[in-house]
């Protein structure tokens, strides 16, 4: 019998080991994100002669658990910019609120030229770089797609370290390994952008989403796709992958219990 009342009803130290008090600590040093929790996988995008196509699936994973299956990871900012979010979903929602307040401020100000994709990319890149410099990163990889001041296609990336770059095609996460090579086949350089039509670009991006669904275990077959051109933003958020062919699966050998 244990005679110390504060031990009653508690796990016995000798059986379960000393109690880990760190779980109870509320007052302590400020803690920053050390790893993402609920995450979105790849975002992919490609330029074409008068705009940009961008896509991301609608899944938010909790580790390997497909936790939320209806999360829209493409955000329309105005008639000429869409932002695609990969990485932590709560940080995405924070950035979404940030963009909302920015949008409100922009609409109340008297400036008659709206924020274009290049402006927004600069803004977001600075937010990301500031947060990484404070050791409190926003755990995201963003693609900013739209039109620049000359209404030319604009596509750029910003990640949790504040690294930025632009390219005719971009893909985050798994897409950087799986989709980017396919996209680069059609769009090897900036000059090739002129030879790609909107229809071809959409087809290309859809094909890549299919490849990603085949091979990325943290992906799903429902996705959002946006086309940004002079006509404005066409955003569809409930697309289903079409014409899947699992014929290749027949030929896969070497996993599981199969021996032949």
């Amino acid at each position: 019998m244990n005679h110390l009342p504060q031990a009653w009803g508690r796990p016995r130290d000798d059986v379960y080991g000393a109690y880990d008090h760190s779980h109870f600590q509320t007052a302590g040093p400020i803690q920053h994100t050390q790893s993402p929790i609920v995450t979105g996988t790849s975002v992919i995008a490609a330029k074409f002669k008068d705009g940009v196509v961008i896509a991301a699936d609608n899944l938010a994973s909790y580790g390997s658990l497909a936790r939320f299956t209806d999360v829209k990871r493409l955000r329309k900012f105005n008639d000429q910019v869409v932002v695609g979010f990969g990485g932590d979903v709560s940080d995405m929602q924070y950035l979404d609120r940030l963009l909302n307040s920015l949008d409100v401020r922009e609409n109340y100000s008297s400036s008659d030229t709206p924020m274009n994709a290049k402006n927004l990319h600069t803004y977001l890149a600075k937010v990301m770089y500031k947060r990484r410099s404070d050791f409190n990163p926003l755990w995201n990889h963003l693609l900013i797609a739209g039109l620049d001041a000359d209404e030319k296609p604009f596509l750029a990336s910003a990640d949790l370290l504040g690294t930025t770059f632009t390219s005719p095609t971009l893909a985050t996460g798994f897409g950087a390994h799986l989709a980017q090579p396919i996209l680069r086949r059609s769009l090897p350089d900036e000059s090739s952008v002129q030879n790609v039509t909107k229809e071809e670009a959409v087809e290309l991006v859809k094909e890549c989403m299919k490849v990603l669904f085949y091979r990325d275990a943290r992906s799903m077959d429902k996705y959002s796709i946006a086309v940004i051109s002079k006509g404005g933003v066409e955003l569809r958020e409930d697309e289903k992958l079409e014409n899947q062919s699992w014929a290749f699966a027949e030929r896969i050998r070497g996993y599981g219990t199969q021996t032949v």
């Binding site: 031990a7 016995r12 130290d13 000393a18 109690y19 008090h21 050390q34 990163p137």
Partner: peptide, 19 residues
């Protein structure tokens, strides 16, 4: 069998992913 006020051992090691 007493309940210790503070853990004597480091609780299950520092587990940090780190940035």
């Amino acid at each position: 069998y007493s309940f210790k006020q503070s853990p004597t051992a480091v609780p299950s090691g520092e587990r940090q992913h780190g940035f």
